[in-house]
Every structure is written in structure tokens, then in C-alpha cells.
């Protein structure tokens, strides 16, 4: 239980660092989805299934959808962001 939670937290933080490092915004959005799913599993393990189901529905589904729509609508001219 403790080591499982520690593993999930490490996965979450690695995905968070990868959000900073990746150049492509779409990859960053997918990594955010990964973080949301991992956080949802963490919520399930700390005895809060209500929050877990909400986080899985919103963080992993709807937020990704809205971000992808925004990326698609702002990407007609520049395909990737240059630093």
C-alpha cells in the first residue's frame, strides 16, 4: 500500500517533469491526462471513491477534449511551438 502509493507519486512527478520538457503541446496534454488518471487511482487508494470517479470523468476525459479542441483551433498556421 505504502510502496504502491510511493510508486504512483513517482510516476505522477515524472509525468509532471516531462510536461515541462516536451516541445509538442499535444504530448503535454496527453501527459496531463496520465497525471489525472494516476491521481484518480491515488484518490481511490486513500478511501475517497467519490473524488476518484469525478477526477477520472473530468480530468481524464473532458479536460483532454477541451485542450485538444483548443490546440486544433490554434494550429492552422504554426504546427509546433518553437522555443
Amino acid at each position: 500500500m505504502l510502496y504502491l502509493l510511493a510508486f504512483l507519486v513517482v510516476v505522477m512527478l515524472i509525468a509532471g517533469i516531462a510536461v515541462i520538457l516536451v516541445k509538442d503541446i499535444l504530448s503535454a496534454v496527453i501527459l496531463t491526462t496520465v497525471i489525472s488518471l494516476v491521481v484518480s487511482i491515488i484518490f481511490l487508494f486513500i478511501a475517497s471513491p467519490d473524488v476518484a470517479i469525478t477526477e477520472a470523468a473530468i480530468g481524464a476525459a473532458l479536460t483532454t477534449v477541451v485542450f485538444v479542441i483548443a490546440i486544433k483551433r490554434t494550429r492552422s498556421k504554426e504546427t509546433t511551438d518553437k522555443e
Binding site: D50, A52, I53, T54, A57, I58, A61, L62
Partner: peptide, 25 residues
């Protein structure tokens, strides 16, 4: 189902409404 069983099991109006919106989407 999630909305109707909000007072018995995890869930309720917020996640149920979001799932319905996802279906629309």
C-alpha cells in the same frame, strides 16, 4: 445510473452529468 445512485454509492450529479456530456461529445 451514476446520478440516481448518488446517495448510495460513489457518484452523484457532478460525475454523472460529466459522463452524459462525454457521451454527447
Amino acid at each position: 445510473y451514476i446520478i440516481a445512485h448518488g446517495h448510495l454509492s460513489p457518484g452523484g450529479g457532478f460525475p454523472g452529468g460529466v459522463i452524459i456530456a462525454t457521451g454527447f461529445f
